[in-house]
Design a protein around this nucleic acid. Structure first.
Length: 424
RNA sequence: GGAGAGGUGGCAGAGUGGUUGAAUGUACCUGACUCGAAAUCAGGCGUACGUGAAAACGUACCGGGGGUUCGAAUCCCUCCCUCUCCGCCA
């Protein structure tokens, strides 16, 4: 959610920033809603004040044994008026909230302008991409090994699921352990275990609801529970309705969770292989810090995710998403893209974003400013560190051998009891 | 799943319809005393929104939502959560 105060005081500035991401800010509608809000809220509070003082006087009169009926008559009028105005205010508030909730975050000044992914800016490359010539894709390699079974998963559930067996299942598990160890031991994150089912308030807090509910799996029942699409939801919402001591900052959390995505609207995209699944594992990094330090934290967090790719010796590049390609809640996003020889290109394996106070405002995640003693909104950030399924894909493809076996990256060997390669 | 007891400020804990945003204790902040600290004394100390340049003022909030009433922390309905006992269970 954007700051309504800034929206009021500098609507043109906000509109210009939103226009950079191709979003038309309806200034006229905002102005009209705001004017109505101001009027209705003022009137409501005025009437409430009259009601309160009237009720007090009734109490006082009764305490003195006096007749309160003249005041009571007055109260009838106030009550009827208040019910009317208050009803209008509530309706307007709903509309206003819907309008505000529909606004994306303003992009940071450093974010490149652009319409879609073609306008993203490559910042750096690391490693030497393996040539595409002669490279098999991970699905072929995995199936040939008899350790990646899409047909079995389709029987059990349906499309976009995978059954892993033997060495690949083990490698997949080792990756999780490896990533958690690096982030906790070398990067100073606290490891968390969190629920994989969350309530609607949490999804609202991080911005998946109300707009992006079609990407979520909903559980039956009246609670409105959903499967998490990312650990970002349970982890970041730990901050909801909290006021943190500034000494606790920055908070740095890492959690491994499965992620569940309906992938509505992805029909026909990445249908082959493990690239786009309804269920996948991810190790997620989340940070909360002060506004002054969030961009520094953004660079660091991105570096933490990159460290995994470096240790695994997987070629990748870092891309700054342009204004048109960023998620609605983000102020700035870097994507890490890993080299996939079978596709002869880089594919997203991590997305690291600074949300500034956009999420924090929705969920009232604050800290106490040490000097002013006032509450200030935190800045929240997160990034994949990394998407485990896609990391597995990248290892299979980049470490494939001529005989169809898969070499094990050195960094993972301690997690696989010294196993040198995965073969049939 | 069954039965019962509860959910009030950072914590503890009063408050069963009226000047209560809420006693009291504790923690914390400021000041006094002290060489300094402790102890003691005095004052301060919730969050959000709104109006305002500011000071300040107004409104809302006692688990969530709804209701009764001129007036609700207090009464009613409903949902959620916690605790105890029983049952079941990885």
């Amino acid at each position: 959610m954007l700051d309504p105060k800034i929206l009021r005081s500098q609507p043109d500035v906000v509109a210009a920033k939103l226009a950079r991401r191709g979003f038309i800010f309806d200034l006229e509608r905002f102005t009209s809603l705001e004017a109505q809000r101001k009027r209705l809220q003022g009137e409501t509070e005025q009437l409430q004040a009259e009601r309160n003082s009237g009720s007090k006087r009734i109490g006082q009169a009764k305490a003195r044994g006096e007749d309160a009926s003249p005041i009571l008559a007055d109260m009838d009028r106030i009550k009827a008026r208040l019910a009317d105005i208050e009803g209008q205010l509530v309706a307007l508030q709903d509309e206003f909230d819907g309008f505000l909730g529909g606004l994306p975050n303003t992009p940071h000044d450093s974010v490149p302008d652009g319409k879609d992914e073609n306008d993203n800016v490559e910042l750096r490359r690391w490693g030497t991409p393996r040539p595409a010539a002669g490279a098999k894709d991970h699905a072929d390699l995995g199936e040939a090994l008899g350790q990646m079974d899409f047909a079995a998963a389709a029987k059990l559930t349906g499309a976009r699921f995978t059954v892993l067996r033997g060495g690949l299942a083990r490698l997949h598990r080792a990756l999780i352990q490896f990533m958690l160890d690096v982030h906790t031991r070398e990067h100073g994150y606290e490891e968390l275990y969190v629920p994989y089912i969350v309530n609607e308030a949490s999804l609202r807090g991080t911005g998946q609801l109300p707009k992006f509910g079609e990407d979520l799996f909903t559980l039956q029942g009246e609670q409105g529970w959903r499967l998490i699409p990312t650990a970002e939801v349970p982890v970041t919402n730990l901050l909801r309705d909290e006021i943190l001591d500034v000494g606790l900052l920055p908070r740095k959390w890492v959690a491994h969770t499965p992620c569940f995505r309906a992938e509505a609207g992805s029909a026909g995209r990445d249908t082959r292989g493990m690239i786009r699944q309804h269920q996948f594992e991810k190790v997620e990094l989340v940070q909360a810090t002060t506004p002054e330090r969030s961009y520094e934290a953004h660079e660091q967090l991105t570096g933490h995710a990159e460290a995994i790719l470096k240790k695994l010796d997987l070629p990748y590049r870092v891309v700054a998403l342009c204004t048109g390609d960023m998620g609605a809640s983000a102020a700035k996003t870097y994507d890490l893209e890993v080299w996939l020889p079978s596709q002869d290109r880089y594919r997203e394996i991590s997305s690291c974003s600074n949300f500034e106070d956009f999420q924090a405002r929705r969920m009232l995640a604050r800290y106490r400013h040490p000097e002013t003693k006032k509450t200030e909104l935190l800045h929240t950030l997160n990034g994949s560190g990394l998407a485990v399924g896609r990391t597995l894909v990248a290892i299979i493809e980049n470490y494939q051998q001529a005989d169809g076996s898969i070499a094990i990256p050195d960094a993972l060997k301690p997690y696989l009891a010294g196993l040198e390669r995965i073969a049939k």
